[in-house]
């Protein structure tokens, strides 16, 4: 009988995670990045959380960033987006052994004080003790009370792609 030892366990964390938001329409592509996403997961229970400051999404154009914060996200009133969920099959993610593992991630995404369930496949790549996690999912702005004025509706997609990419290290 072969005994497998899964060296998963403990808290893995970073304050320098990336989240990209991307909107594609025939008229214009809009992209913005946040490189200071605070996120952590529990290698034993699979609990996964992140918190991102809305104002910290940087757009190529200052005007787009201004509209995003003031008109759509009201980011002074609703400064953060958070996610509180689970890596469903955490047992399959062996943080002690280099390799690539996949698991569904499900949980509650909160934007503008509106909380919705989201689910996506996550890819976890372990290398030299660093766990890189990547996932992509799509949200509809209307689901989170983000109202796009008719004058610019043709330039902003109803399907916003969210890409998360974070390098976690064991928290001491």
């Amino acid at each position: 009988m072969v005994a497998f030892t899964n060296h998963s366990g403990g808290i893995f964390k970073t304050n320098t995670g990336n989240i990209n938001v991307f909107s594609h329409t025939a008229i214009e592509d809009i992209t913005a990045d946040n490189h200071k996403v605070k996120t952590a997961f529990d290698g034993t229970s699979g609990k996964l959380q992140f918190s991102a400051l809305i104002k910290d999404f940087e757009f190529p154009k200052a005007l787009m960033q201004e509209h995003f914060n003031e008109n759509y996200m009201e980011s002074t009133k609703f400064p953060k987006s958070t996610f509180n969920g689970m890596i469903e099959n955490i047992a399959a993610v062996n943080t002690g052994t280099d390799g690539t593992y996949t698991s569904n991630v499900t949980g509650k995404l909160t934007i503008k004080d509106v909380t919705k369930e989201v689910s996506a496949q996550g890819t976890f790549t372990v290398k030299n003790g660093v766990v890189n996690a990547k996932t992509t999912f799509v949200i509809n702005p209307e689901d989170y009370n983000i109202t796009i004025p008719k004058t610019v509706a043709s330039k902003i997609s109803k399907e916003i792609k969210i890409t998360v990419d974070a390098d976690y290290r064991h928290a001491h």
Binding site: I11, K36, F41
Partner: peptide, 21 residues
């Protein structure tokens, strides 16, 4: 100044950062 990150509701992220960019 971008605000304060971290959350009392998220136990793994209870530490707080005031963020400057």
């Amino acid at each position: 100044c971008m605000g304060m990150n971290g959350s009392d509701e998220l136990d793994l992220l209870a530490d707080k950062d005031v963020v400057l960019s």
